[in-house]
């Protein structure tokens, strides 16, 4: 086992993620956070808004108990056109959002728990962001599609 925080993943994260991955776009995203007692990762919220920017703003506006920017994890259901009449595809991308202005301790915990959550969920692609510009729609599209769309 590689060095990690030992923070556990609440079972509900995994079961809801399974439902989410089978929901065929009904749920577009899920956001996860560290519980207040810093012992486990729990679901923060999920939603079905089709507009990516609604999700991005929600993710990037997350605040900690003192009102400072706070890290989060998220999964987003990316839909893209393959082009050439091959139709649409859906891929789930895992996003770790750790803004530089966030609390040092939270940054450390989110970084050292990321791998545990990612492995538990098993999404197709992943991306890390510390600035809002790191997760522009085109970048996310590019990463999720393995370079077949976006950018």
């Amino acid at each position: 086992m590689s060095l990690n925080s030992g923070v556990s993943i609440n079972d509900e994260c995994v079961t809801s993620y399974k439902e989410f991955s089978l929901s065929r776009g009904k749920t577009k995203y899920m956001i996860f956070k560290l519980s207040d007692d810093k012992s486990e990762i729990v679901i923060d919220e999920s939603g079905g808004e089709k507009d990516y920017e609604v999700f991005r703003n929600k993710l990037c506006d997350a605040k900690d108990s003192k009102g400072r920017p706070a890290p989060r994890y998220a999964v987003y259901d990316v839909e893209y056109e393959l082009g050439g009449g091959e139709g649409k595809r859906n891929k789930i991308i895992f996003i770790s959002w750790v803004p530089e202005e966030s609390d040092r301790m939270l940054r450390m915990i989110y970084a050292s728990t990321r791998e545990g959550l990612k492995t538990a969920l098993g999404p197709a692609a992943s991306i890390h962001a510390d600035e809002k510009g790191d997760i522009e729609w085109n970048t996310v599209l590019y990463e999720a599609s393995g370079g077949k769309a976006g950018k």
């Binding site: 060095l3 966030s102 940054r107 450390m108």
Partner: peptide, 18 residues
């Protein structure tokens, strides 16, 4: 006891797993 690699710890302290 635990032994951690400097590089991993410094990356984590900046909020990054990679």
């Amino acid at each position: 006891f635990y032994l951690g690699r400097n590089g991993v710890l410094a990356a984590f302290a900046s909020g990054k797993a990679s």
